[in-house]
Design a protein around this nucleic acid. Structure first.
Length: 433
DNA sequence: GAGCTGCTAAACAGAC
DNA sequence: TGTCTGTTTAGCAGCT
């Protein structure tokens, strides 16, 4: 996978403030970077960045420091503030949350220091994340693990004020990413689409590891902020986009600092105990979020674990390219449609057999989508997928179905992926011998 | 230099 | 009708 650092080094003259953050995280963490590895190292990147950020705010900080500031200001602030910082997060000049948990920082007007000036400047900088990661973060931070495009916009704008003043082209990019990126799946919003147009978008669990790995590669130091619980819990009325942090705080502290990075932080969003909950803040959500069985992407840790375990295994067995788009499944794994969720349904892939009929495009086996203007049909697909996914959300039932389907297909002479896996395993063993 | 990846812009059509 | 949404294509640039 290529430059996942995203917001790729600019090709054009962009909004002011871009030049300072051009170096990006790669510049930070690159071995040849001007900053020592300690900045990106596992020892205490957060403290380092904070120290540097605070020290460097007054003077001849280089671009890397600017980036650290950016990380500090944008991410630490927005993430650690959580729901409590909702109002503040909407304003680029919102005060930082003290990493030590001291909310006293909230009392200090940001305009009182020179650092706040740089904060405001950097907040208008383009974040060093690719759109796919931004979307991923937005979706992952939603309680329902699914968001409509509009909410994704909102999340991005809220957490990255750069986009609030940026030309609207980025929205096109977001939509483009949602459509094109296999990591994101469209979900039927509800029966009848009572709540506006568009669908919900969720992260394909199968590709979540890819996204996580992409985040990992960013060495997102601010993720360590997830370890720092806020002094006061966010209000219950905290918006869905930030509420998951509460869970993050709960679990993050038990982890080694060195083990925590953006990826794990994001994972914690999903694995924090008791994470699954309804979305009280999203009355519009037609999904009954309190019922994980109805939620396409379950937020239940166990469910999700089972749900994506196979995908994880597969992803781990895949090439380490960590491509968001195409780090995807090996050719052996049928992926007829990018958004088709196959995670957790290994061996129950009757759809795989009928799929792959279409040719794949040049990018890593992603099937070329249906002819143009097929959006309506593609929208209808998730229903079947959802049903399948809901079935697979129950491991026992899933196993039964797998076996039943496997038996039927076996009788019919169709080799299921389960069989394929078994055979491949056998063949591997034989080959080793 | 090729291939891959990501970003951007544009066009188009359907849904609301 | 206008806006939003989703899809697709194309071009460009950076990285490996």
């Amino acid at each position: 996978m290529g430059p996942i650092i995203g917001m790729s080094p600019d090709k054009k003259a962009e909004t002011p403030g871009m030049q300072g953050e051009r170096v990006g995280l790669r510049g930070l963490c690159g071995g040849a970077g001007t900053l020592p590895e300690a900045v990106c190292g596992a020892a205490s990147p957060l403290a380092t960045s904070l120290d540097r950020g605070s020290v460097g705010s007054g003077g001849s900080e280089d671009e890397e420091l600017t980036n650290l500031n950016w990380l500090h200001e944008n991410l630490l602030q927005n993430f650690t503030l959580g729901g409590a910082g909702e109002a503040g997060a909407q304003h680029s000049a919102s005060p930082l949350f003290d990493i030590e948990g001291n909310t006293g920082a909230l009392q200090n007007p940001p305009s009182s220091s020179s650092a706040s000036l740089s904060q405001r400047d950097s907040l208008k900088s383009k974040p060093p994340f690719s759109f796919s990661l931004l979307i991923y973060m937005a979706i992952e931070q939603s309680p329902s693990k699914s968001l409509p495009v509009k909410d994704i916009y909102g999340w991005i704008v809220q957490h990255f004020p750069y986009f609030s003043s940026a030309p609207t082209g980025w929205k096109n990019s977001v939509r483009h990413n949602l459509s094109l990126n296999k990591c994101f799946r469209k979900v039927e919003r509800s029966l009848g689409k009572l709540n506006g147009k568009g669908s919900l978008w969720c992260v394909d669990p199968e590709y979540r590891p890819n996204l996580i790995q992409a985040l990992k590669k960013q060495h997102f130091p601010a993720a360590h902020a997830f370890c720092t619980p806020p002094a006061s819990p966010p209000p219950a009325s905290s918006p869905p986009a930030t509420s998951p942090h509460r869970h993050l705080f709960l679990q993050g502290c038990s982890l080694k600092e060195s083990d925590i990075d953006a990826a794990t932080a994001m994972m914690l969003l999903n694995t924090a105990p008791g994470h699954h909950h309804a979305n009280p803040c999203d009355p519009e959500s037609p999904l009954d979020l309190s019922r994980p069985d109805l939620v396409l992407v379950s937020s239940d840790p166990n469910q999700d674990h089972n749900y994506s375990s196979m995908a994880l295994q597969r992803c781990s067995s895949r090439s380490s390219s960590s491509s968001l788009d195409d780090g995807g499944p090996s050719p052996g794994h049928a992926h007829h449609r990018p958004r088709t969720c196959r995670a957790g349904s290994e061996g129950f892939h009757s759809d795989e057999d009928d799929s792959d009929l279409g040719d794949r495009d040049e990018r890593g086996g992603r099937p070329r989508p249906a002819p143009r203007r097929s959006s309506s049909s593609s929208v209808k697909h998730p229903a079947g997928k959802r049903a399948r996914r809901e079935l697979t959300a129950n491991p026992e039932l899933d196993e039964e179905l797998k076996e039943a389907a496997g038996s039927l297909l076996h009788l019919a002479g169709i080799r299921t992926s389960m069989d394929v896996n078994k055979r491949s395993a056998k063949s591997k063993k034989l080959n080793r011998k």
